[in-house]
């Protein structure tokens, strides 16, 4: 059995491995390499050592973007998950038209980020118009605009995952609790919440990494205005990359740092939520 597996191993794995290397591993390593160089095109890179990394902090853009991103991630992770969970609760109550509502709430997720960004820019500017200002008036508007947009887009998706989780709760547990006289709140707190913990893991992970990597929506909604105060990390990296002479390497270095941050957060978060699932099971 084992020997057979070994024999066929290359045949089955090789195509995927090749595709994975070409599309992911090689560009990734190349990208890390380029972050130590100065380049105009990828073929004429010149080694500059750590200079790119030191010039990241030459101005405050990167730190501002990092701070803005962290704030945004905190707010949007909390709001998206709360709304999505309660929406899922409501839509598992066998109300009439449940399927219609699920579809409707899910639809925003099918629209591309750039389109969404422009649509919301029009909507929000249309509202702010009455007050004689626009989204770019203050970074606060841009921030909440992004939060609203993110919620609108992500809630439906997360809701579907929560619905799947809630529907998988065995009905005998629920019935037993009801017979024992548990209040709806107790059922929610002691049965539903612990039993959908795996869904929470997935949803927290997805909202967090999606919010952290947000780019299209940011570009289309505010493009960082005013004065790059609403630029998130991904947009800042993009702006740096195309800013002018010799900044491509700096942008690349920022991207490497960005990767490390995202990877670290995702890793820690996965560990923490996995641990919690373990205790409740």
């Amino acid at each position: 059995m084992n020997r057979k597996n070994n024999k066929y191993f290359p045949i089955f794995v090789l195509p995927t491995l090749l595709a994975f290397s070409i599309a992911f591993v090689i560009p990734f390593l190349l990208g890390i390499g380029l972050s130590f160089t100065e380049f105009t095109t990828v073929t004429n890179a010149k080694w500059t050592g750590l200079r790119n990394y030191s010039s990241i902090f030459a101005n405050k853009d990167f730190l501002n973007a990092l701070l803005f991103t962290v704030k945004f991630v905190l707010v949007s992770v909390i709001t998206v998950n709360i709304f999505a969970f309660f929406m899922a609760l409501m839509l598992t109550r066998k109300i009439k038209g449940t399927n219609l509502f699920r579809t409707v709430f899910f639809m925003p997720n099918l629209i591309g980020g750039i389109v969404l960004g422009y649509i919301w820019q029009l909507i929000l500017n249309g509202i702010l118009y009455h007050y004689g200002v626009t989204l770019t008036f203050s970074p606060v508007y841009g921030f909440w605009g992004l939060v609203i947009l993110m919620n609108w887009q992500m809630i439906g998706y997360m809701m579907v995952i929560y619905i799947a989780g809630i529907q998988n709760i065995p009905s005998d547990v629920m019935e037993a609790a009801k017979i024992d006289g548990a209040s709806p709140f107790q059922i929610l707190r002691k049965i539903t919440l612990p039993l959908v913990a795996p869904s929470f893991t997935i949803c927290l992970f997805l909202t967090m990494s999606n919010s952290f990597k947000l780019f299209d929506q940011n570009l289309a909604l505010t493009a960082g205005a005013p004065s790059r105060k609403t630029a998130m990390l991904a947009l800042d990296i993009y702006n740096t990359f195309y800013a002018g002479n010799g900044t491509a390497g700096v942008g690349q270095a920022k991207a490497v740092i960005f990767f490390i941050i995202v990877a670290a957060i995702a890793f820690i978060q996965l560990r923490v939520t996995r641990g919690r699932e373990g205790t409740t099971e």
């Binding site: 004689g132 200002v133 008036f137 205005a225």
Partner: peptide, 8 residues
Amino acid sequence: TQKGLLGS
């Protein structure tokens, strides 16, 4: 156009 709206 009013000044506040020029941003769009």
